[in-house]
Amino acid sequence: MLFVKKIFLFFKRESKLFHNNIVDLLSNIIFFFLSIFVFVFALGTDEQLLRSIGLGIIWSLLLFSSTLSLRKFYEDDFNNGVLIIFHMSGISYEFIAFLKIISHFLFVQMPFLISLPIASIFFNLPIIEVYNLILTFIIGSLILSCLGSISASMNLLNKTNFSIGSILVLLFSIPLIIFSVGINEYENNFYSLFNLLLGIALIFLGISPWSSGAFIKLALKNK
């Protein structure tokens, strides 16, 4: 019971932090829309062309926008010692990482859901593709949060090369992009690819708290 209360407390604190930091969050979404505009200006306004490449552009820009604020994933809590305090209240670092992933998923990735239909309107996507996009994004953003957790916890140990985290996230999200955009290519492929995505998400949900916890422990030891 006490444990559940602590988890609840954690999410309350996170939601307050994100609420105070809403500008940062909205900046990500503005970045997303602005880069769509840049793409359209660069490619011209040919409706057919935009419709055929729209989904790919939306997905890659979603990736870029969600790696923008990855540095902040653990850094604040690590620098001011909240991670240690939270750990000393009886929760393992692995579980803290898991909670962080969930809160990143809820507070950073989910607001993008509102922007997805608007972005689809810009590209005149057919309704079935919008539906697929939203479904795949819910799963895909969970994978992105897991990847982000790994790369951000790695960056705690790394004081020289800051872009390597984003590079790794982009590299490992290649299969994610292939599957989530490929879902529209063949109609009867939907369920197999969707299940594949779900499987990847579950694997990452298992791996990433474990590896982030290990990295956090190492970072605390090397501080």
Partner: peptide, 21 residues
């Protein structure tokens, strides 16, 4: 992609201060 992986491995060699990590 293999080339990119190789380059990242070389970069990672310059990245962390702690040798074991």
């Amino acid at each position: 992609i293999l080339l990119i992986i190789y380059v990242i491995i070389i970069f990672l060699n310059q990245t962390f201060e702690n040798r074991e990590v």
